[in-house]
Simulated assay, not measured.
Amino acid sequence: MENINEDILKLKGEAPHLEIKNDLIRNMTSDNLYHLALSTRTHNFKEMFQDIKFVCVGGSSKRMEKFAQFIASELGIKTPCINLASETDRYALFKAGPVLIASHGIGTPSISIVMHEILKLLYHARCQDKVTFFRLGTCGGLGLKPGTVVISDTAVDGLFREKYEARLDGAFCGYTQDQKMAFLIEAYKKGVRNIEMESLCFLAMCHQANVKGAVICVTLLDRLKSDQISETKTTLKEWEERPAKIALRYIKSELSKN
């Protein structure tokens, strides 16, 4: 955990301001963030979100609610962490002081929807501080002991797209054990240490918006050895808390400078 904390501190430094590269948004009289149940017509975005400095997103609504409560407790925030998107069942959205927390569901289409709306939310809020994004989650590791936390600031696709999952236990499978292992070994040699479904989209959108972003995921298994998770629920629950604790370290470190 200590060595991993050193890696995440590489994000420190002069963070760029968020950019919305869409003149149509700038000229709109109102903007409805449908999937977050928010609108510039009915909500005061500056009053609600102008102090945001960090955005943390993760797949599960319940997990992100727990993370929001954890952040609030650790930062000494007394305001209750309510779901600001409770009028929709698409996503969950919480605010713990300067930290915005949201669920993003599973896969690229789902995370792209909420990222678009969060980026527009921050634009409309006219955030005075530069914002850092994190995706917190779980993943399949490559050549790593289960429970290892991987911090990613780069995601790859390219030649790996055809056999993205490279697993033999799905409803459909068009390749052999040898083909699967050849792909995973090639990915490992190229520096890939974990496999999940949202990082490529998440980091691409952070890049487009000119904000710093990193992915912090805990491995639940080593895909070079198995496609099935075998750990107990208690162990998995403890592992899932590791990315949250690392993100908290970074947030506390940045806030202590002010």
Rank of each mutant, 00 (worst) to 15 (best):
E6H: 13
D7Q: 10
I8M: 01
I8L: 12
I8P: 00
L9K: 10
K10G: 02
L11H: 07
K12P: 03
K12H: 12
G13D: 10
G13S: 10
A15K: 07
H17P: 00
H17Y: 08
H17T: 05
L18Q: 03
I20C: 06
I20D: 07
I20K: 03
N22V: 04
N22H: 12
N22P: 00
D23A: 11
D23N: 07
L24W: 00
L24F: 02
R26E: 14
R26I: 05
N27L: 14
N27P: 00
M28L: 10
T29G: 01
T29V: 12
T29D: 15
S30V: 05
S30I: 03
D31P: 00
N32H: 10
N32T: 05
L33I: 05
L33F: 04
L33M: 10
H35Q: 13
H35S: 14
H35A: 11
L36Q: 13
L36C: 12
L36K: 13
L36W: 11
A37V: 14
L38T: 06
T40E: 04
R41I: 04
R41W: 10
T42K: 08
H43I: 08
N44T: 10
K46F: 03
K46S: 13
K46C: 06
K46M: 11
M48V: 00
Q50T: 12
Q50E: 13
D51R: 04
D51F: 04
I52C: 07
K53Y: 00
F54E: 09
V55P: 01
V55Y: 06
C56N: 10
